[in-house]
Amino acid sequence: MTGRPLSPHLQVYKPQLTSMLSILHRASGATLYMASLLMVYWLFALASGSTHADALNSGLTEWWGKIVLYGILFCVYYHLANGLRHLMWDTGKGLDLKTAYMTGWLVVVFSLVATAVTLLMMMGGVQ
């Protein structure tokens, strides 16, 4: 802000799995916070009568509503799994490069598979 040189920032670094997962944790967290406010609105709709709730539910049957819901689901699984990774780091474990990459890929695979399985379960049930 005062025109002083800044230390090297993001653009000088090669994107890596670890840095991408790190920013995705923040992005998914911000998304989930918005989703939790939507969740509060959904509860409010349920409590204030079925017209609000029906409107919200009919939004979920539209293609864009489904994309939003599936996106939120992915964020839930990703933030959950990567959050556990962070909690593990808090205990001082798994911080070496090899383990960090291994758990990173584990988180990626888990969130994709869990999202896919949930979608299949929903398609089998909801109408």
């Binding site: 349920l46 709730a53 839930v76 959950l80 556990l84 379960m121 929903m122 049930g125």
Partner: peptide
């Protein structure tokens, strides 16, 4: 830490519900 089991519980509960005709 609280959110780990609670989130799994909620997603599981919602999946158990979706089979009905009237979701609300």
């Amino acid at each position: 830490i609280a959110l780990v089991p609670l989130t799994i519980w909620f997603v599981g509960s919602m999946l158990g519900l979706t089979a009905g005709d009237n979701a609300v």
